[in-house]
Design a protein around this nucleic acid. Structure first.
Lengths: 197, 197
DNA sequence: CGAGTGACAGATATTGAAATATGTCACTCG
DNA sequence: CGAGTGACATATTTCAATATCTGTCACTCG
């Protein structure tokens, strides 16, 4: 981390550095003073851009979640063979992304899990977005006659709830089990079958 | 709590008193000395019957889980209109039981949640038992032609996983939401539909 | 005997004083 | 000006001492 550049201090730069500091020190040790030090400014300056440490961490959480939605949005809006297969692909992409994040860098994942529980409001908005994507896929299926659902948002929510074990970070430890993929496939198959016209 | 009776000190009495002490002091404050005091004996005597505090707490956990299985076993082995409706009744009984335990005495529920995370081995055995009951209901449905499943144990497991949000204590906070019942019904309907022949 | 004891060593938890962090704001200086 | 500062008051965390608890065992006594 270079001690400073004469670049202007922007919210964006602060967020980047906060991520860096969180990655290095973890969620309990990372302080606003650390962030300021890494940026080569006083901690008072950070408070010019974010009203509190909580707001700063919330913004980091939001950014992180926003990034992870992009790929799923691509699946959602891309044309696919059929709605059921798109649904399966979407669920698998979500699971695989989470599983790799958790498996490849467990410490960083644990850090973000802490941030997530700290910022349930941001998480709720994110989940709403994901469920909305599911709703769009299901609508597509209903329109094409391959899926059946009289209340699409409720069905989307049900699919999301039913697959919680494969995306809720609380279950991250289970994702290391060698049988987890079989279990994922069983649940996915059950859910998609339940939704078929 | 009477200071002692001249009754013989049995594992059963110790377990009862330990439950009592856990209920009153919570999982972090309850000590073996407290249990001994409540029984009117020295704490050394408790160690005559249980090799460690951990073993004692594990035994309490086991007892508690065993008690809660009885009602579900009754549903499992009772005759029913159809396998799908028995499956629905079983899932609803499980959810309602948990929801009431969590809602009626949140502190006690929190205490047991701590014991549960401490004793994952006991919990795993308990979950296996529950999933086994589900398997028996599904088998019955397959035999009667009302349900379809080529791998019954896997299907049972999938049903259990898919309904996790409505029995995993980690979600207990959600059970207070006024929409939770609707969500439960949506997931149950989806899962049962996915299993229908 | 043998169920129960209680003093003991080592492990764990509590406490409160010192150290560090958060958040504010009057000020500096380009 | 106005972005950035740093000294300050308050809140939170850390750390080491003290207290309590766990687990053992030689012993008591009905």
């Amino acid at each position: 981390m270079p001690p400073a550049a004469a670049e202007p201090l922007t919210p964006e730069r602060i967020l980047e550095t906060t991520e860096e500091v969180l990655r290095r020190f973890g969620p309990t040790k990372a302080t606003v003073v650390d962030v300021a030090r890494a940026l080569g400014v006083s901690h008072g300056s950070v408070y010019r851009h974010f009203p509190s440490k909580a707001a700063l961490r919330e913004a980091v959480t939001d950014r992180w979640l926003a990034r992870s939605v992009v790929m799923l949005e691509q699946i959602t809006s891309a044309p696919a063979e059929s709605a059921p297969s798109k649904l399966e692909a979407w669920l698998e992409a979500l699971f695989e992304a989470k599983r790799h994040k958790a498996g490849d860098d467990p410490e960083l994942f644990a850090t973000y899990t802490v941030l997530l529980t700290e910022n349930s409001g941001v998480v709720d908005a994110h989940l709403t977005e994901l469920i909305d994507q599911l709703g769009r896929i299901i609508s597509e299926g209903v329109a094409a006659g391959s899926l059946a659902a009289d209340d699409v948002p409720a069905a989307a929510r049900a699919v999301f709830d039913a697959t919680g074990r494969f995306h809720d970070p609380q279950y991250a430890a289970d994702w290391l089990s060698p049988t987890i993929i079989t279990e994922f496939e069983a649940v996915t198959a059950l859910v998609v079958r339940g939704l078929r016209a």
